[in-house]
């Protein structure tokens, strides 16, 4: 019961702030709604027993990535809003049509009954109370090579971002 209330509240907030992100006129307001949205997603992770991910979500997404967006919005000091002189309706119709196609696809997938747990893969490591140790163990054993690759990806992205943002490109 308590879990249901928590789920519906958080889900409503996630969707509500998600809609606000894409409808807000002011980009800075958009970013603020995005942060709130991410915080509620972190709440959802706590509900699902993934405390470590919840904290990572707040540190990396809300505290890192979105701050970057905020910086860029402040650096690109816009004199006129980019969507002022557009044919809004044409874009809107096209966008909604494409989105409806994706939605139909998702509904088709969801129409199949989801596979029961028995048919799926057996748990590699039974999830205990210590979520952090669990994730860490998997990350440094089974997924060590993807983990190292991810670090390389981040390094490349960092160097790329610095090169791109230099003035004398």
């Amino acid at each position: 019961m308590g879990q249901a209330i928590a789920f519906y509240t958080i889900a409503a907030c996630i969707l509500g702030f998600g809609v606000l992100v894409i409808t807000a006129k002011n980009t800075v307001h958009s970013i603020m709604f995005l942060v709130v949205n991410f915080l509620f997603v972190a709440g959802l992770y706590v509900l699902l027993g993934a405390q470590f991910l919840a904290v990572i979500q707040v540190v990396v997404y809300a505290g890192g990535i979105v701050v970057l967006y905020l910086f860029v919005v402040m650096l690109v000091n816009l004199k006129r809003p980019p969507e002022a002189h557009q044919d809004r309706r044409r874009r809107g119709r096209l966008g909604v049509t494409c989105s409806l196609v994706v939605l139909a696809e998702l509904v088709a997938i969801a129409a199949y009954k989801y596979v029961s747990p028995a048919a799926g893969l057996p748990p590699a490591l039974p999830m205990g109370p210590d979520n952090v140790a669990q994730v860490g163990m998997l990350l440094y054993t089974d997924y060590l090579i993807p983990f190292e690759l991810a670090s390389m990806l981040l390094l490349v992205a960092m160097v790329g971002a610095i090169v791109l943002a230099r003035r004398d490109l």
Binding site: G18, V19, V21, P81, G95, V96, C98, S99, V102
Partner: peptide
């Protein structure tokens, strides 16, 4: 949430 993201990508110009 995914659909909201798709609509955002398709309709916004910024």
């Amino acid at each position: 949430l995914f659909i909201i993201g798709v609509i955002g990508v398709m309709t916004r110009r910024n």
